[in-house]
Design a protein around this nucleic acid. Sequence first.
DNA 1: ATACCTGCAAACCCTTTGCACTCGG
DNA 2: CCGAGTGCAAAGGGTTTGCAGGTAT
Lengths: 153, 153
Amino acid sequence: LTLEERAIKIIQMNAGSDLTEKLKSLDHRITPIRRHMFKFFSDNPSPVSAIDILDNFSSLGIDVNKTTVYREIEFLVKSGIIQEVEFGEGKKRYEVDTGRHHHHVICLNCKTIADVELEVDLHKEEKLIEAKTGFKVKNHSLEFFGLCPNCLK
Amino acid sequence: LTLEERAIKIIQMNAGSDLTEKLKSLDHRITPIRRHMFKFFSDNPSPVSAIDILDNFSSLGIDVNKTTVYREIEFLVKSGIIQEVEFGEGKKRYEVDTGRHHHHVICLNCKTIADVELEVDLHKEEKLIEAKTGFKVKNHSLEFFGLCPNCLK
DNA sequence: ATACCTGCAAACCCTTTGCACTCGG
DNA sequence: CCGAGTGCAAAGGGTTTGCAGGTAT
């Protein structure tokens, strides 16, 4: 699934997609705030923080308590709709779970984030690490830091 | 410099190494707590958190305020003696700065950490990313997660 | 009616700051 | 002596929890 396909799928929530059905079967409801969360994530492909969400809602005049946002995030993660990422900022970020493994490059100045897909195969490295350390490797986290085109000017 | 060499260098602090001279020239003093910090980092090659340090000091009967530990960490980072690393735990870790670029594999269960050196050259990837995204890449962070030999049993 | 959902306040964890005091060189 | 180092309390940022009240189905 591409990000676009995923976003569309999520937006379909507003009508009656299989995602709606999935939620129903899990005894989860379609509430106004949940709808706003779906909309927000479908509009924002880059990893966002809980505070980003709160600020955005606030600027739209949507009155939501931060506890609710944190709980909605938890719900969306558990449902496999979004996933957590961390860039060592002291806060968590979340992005739509496209199912495609990728990495990020983050601007040290303005925090703009772009997706990155590797050419090298880190699975080979994982095998080497297992041989060397005795660990069983489950996953990895790789992020690049630098300056975005805008901040380079 | 190998980690061992670095550790020895740090321990030499107790006598009168060039590191001592460096600190003196920077108007920095050799205090009992600072000595304990050096000792702690030379004894602990794996990344540790501020709380790890506080707990260790406490178990040794060394009475230090947490603010002091945070400020000592800040001092050691600025001096280039230790460096910060982050594993998405919501807290920072620090390890002796050996000058050699490396990565880590972290046990998801017990948090044991092992050093890892890559075979692939991520610099090539950085060049590719620059070509694709327009970012200027400055550095990266790569950590592997899995289960250590002990927790695999 | 029965879950789930929500808001509010408070607690939580990690880290930083302000201020007065102490101590090393 | 002077400036670096220290402790204490408080505040700060991000996140979680407990509990009462609200709402979708």
